[in-house]
Computed example of a mutant assay.
Amino acid sequence: MSERVEYFLEDMGFHGKSERTRAAYERVLGEYAAFLDQRGVSPADADRRDCLAWVSSIRDGRADSTVATYASYVHRFYAYMSQVGELEANPMSLVVEEMDESIDTDPARREISIPRMRSFVADIRHPLERALVMTLLKTGVRVGELCNLDLRDVTLDAPELGDAYELGGRAHLDGRTDTLFVDPDTVRGATVNGEERTASNKRKRVTLVPIDGELKRALLRWLAIRPDAPSPADPLFVSTSDAWGERLTPEMVRNVVTRHATDAGWYEPGADATENVTPHYFRHFFTTHLRDRTGDRGVVKYLRGDVADDIIDTYTHNWGDRVREVYLDSIYSLTT
């Protein structure tokens, strides 16, 4: 295995990636390096056509979603090594952008209609739990990204809040109301905004996600009862139970979702992951339904955080006229 691949894997360990995740990267990157070796090329010297040839070589006998996952691992390797200055370019960028395969392609996954999800949300009464579920369903954020949100990461046009909260301290949010900021640089173990984080954001770039009227009402209901937080970071979502006022952890959020999904008959211990409804399922729901309603793959990819800085994309350069407009015109309703 090349020295640069070993360097990358070591850094993934430093960033808190699990042993299972590192093993998956090691296996895929090892196969990729072996393929390049047969072509007489090292990972550092590979170009777009080498990447294309490798993707073509792994399609035989593998599901489309597996091919997409493997390609994403190689893409992540190059993106990271470029960011830290070990490599000059990411030859996998355009290849991944043009691939037809989707990591989310899973024909066996449970499919829930918008009306059924609307009924599910209606049964959630606690303001915190309702705000958590609504945020996951209407923004597509990962559970770790949800937990990492601070008050400075959200803006709300809500005069009724008065001076109760200092919202929207991020420079990216200047002049933008009713918006969430998701930071790609927040990683587990790092101290961010004065607090050590226990979860990582897995975005390729800064993402600004619009907040529609429904989600705004859910957030305002939550903020009306939110306990004061001891953390200097002022987390958006904090515990109202045993860990009173402490930032919610991904496990706490999963427990909330599991409890409500079990009540709805959508979760059974030991069942296949494609059948159980989890926070990750909500990201799938968001992607599927918003993509179907917009027909705009680029906007959905931006909102999911899947568009990297090294891919030219016009959507982020015209926020008000494109991403926000498309989102607000297309986002599904989850309340009656």
Rank of each mutant, 00 (worst) to 15 (best):
M1S: 12
E3G: 12
L9K: 03
E10H: 13
E10I: 06
D11Q: 13
G13W: 00
E19V: 05
E19P: 01
E19L: 10
T21Y: 07
R22N: 04
R22C: 08
E26A: 15
G30H: 10
E31L: 13
F35V: 09
V41L: 08
S42Y: 01
P43E: 06
A44S: 14
A44Y: 01
A46V: 07
R48Q: 14
A53Q: 10
S56I: 02
S57M: 10
S57W: 09
I58F: 12
G61D: 02
A63V: 09
A63N: 11
D64R: 14
Y70A: 06
V74D: 03
V74S: 00
V74A: 06
F77G: 03
S82G: 13
Q83L: 13
E86N: 08
L87P: 03
A89T: 14
E98F: 00
E101K: 02
E101Q: 14
S102G: 12
D104Y: 13
I112T: 09
S113T: 15
I114S: 08
P115T: 11
V121W: 04
I124G: 02
P127A: 12
R130S: 12
M134R: 10
M134L: 15
M134I: 06
M134F: 08
T135M: 12
L136Y: 04
L136V: 03
L137G: 02
T139Y: 07
V141T: 05
G144Q: 01
E145L: 06
D150R: 12
D153T: 09
D153G: 08
L156M: 10
P159R: 09
D163R: 15
D163K: 15
Y165N: 08
E166W: 06
R170A: 09
A171M: 12
H172A: 15
D174W: 07
R176L: 15
D178F: 08
V182P: 01
T186R: 07
E195N: 04
E195G: 03
E196D: 02
R197L: 11
A199Y: 03
K202S: 10
R203C: 02
V209I: 15
P210S: 11
A218Q: 09
L220A: 06
R221F: 00
I225K: 08
I225A: 10
I225L: 12
D228T: 13
A229E: 00
P235E: 10
T240L: 12
T240I: 14
D242S: 14
D242K: 14
A243W: 08
G245I: 09
E246W: 05
E246R: 14
R247K: 13
T249K: 14
N255H: 11
V256W: 00
A261Y: 03
D263K: 13
G265W: 01
Y267I: 01
E268Y: 06
P269W: 06
G270D: 02
A271L: 01
A271P: 05
P279H: 05
Y281G: 01
F285V: 01
H289D: 07
L290S: 06
R291F: 03
R291D: 00
R293F: 06
T294N: 03
D296Y: 01
V300D: 00
V307Y: 00
D309R: 12
D313R: 07
Y315S: 06
W319H: 11
W319Q: 05
G320A: 14
R324E: 13
V326P: 00
Y327C: 03
D329W: 06
I331A: 02
T336F: 12
